[in-house]
Amino acid sequence: MDKESTRLNGKDLINVGIFTAIISVMMILISFIGFIPYLMPTYCIFMPLLIGIPWMLFATKVNKFGMVLIMGILLGIVLMLTGMGWYAMPLCIVVSLIAEFIMKSGDYKSAKKDILAHGIFSLWVFGSYIPIFLTAEQYWADRGSYGEEYIATAMSIFQPWLAPIMIVACFVFGVIGAWIGLKVMKKHFVKAGIV
């Protein structure tokens, strides 16, 4: 390939922006279920599951190195601006880089690799939980004014053993979501001639 076709051009960058906007809006809408503390861990199910649909469509637009990585960085910025903390940023960069390499290994054409890549990419959802697990003691100690009951509820939900389960859930539902995305895409977008 010559240099021109491997460099990201304006159209690619605009595509990244559009899809990150769609994914961010979905993320913000889904995160409203977290107002009920018991449902907060279910982000790991709903976000990867639903975001699989735009992801597969995005994957058809990706054909150069860097697009997934830029999307990861943008998602990190959105998470930071919506107050999920800066812990999510390094995680977003790492998982999007891994996803990028997986897709590159399939030359950006393999649907199976796209699905697997979404499983890895979905681990960004875990980013907003990092402070809850890593600094659990201090996290809840700072919140003494929350009242005993709230802390007891929250701590009973976020047990340390939940962390690996949530990470696995992100991956599994990411793969399922992308698989559903592939079905939806074949049903609608291929027929409509968009892909």
Partner: peptide, 21 residues
């Protein structure tokens, strides 16, 4: 610009996505 362009497109697109939704 690799970050600036997608970022400005994203902010430009938030209201559009919400309106379409």
């Amino acid at each position: 610009p690799l970050i600036t362009i997608p970022l400005s497109v994203m902010f430009r697109f938030f209201p559009t996505v919400i309106e379409e939704a």
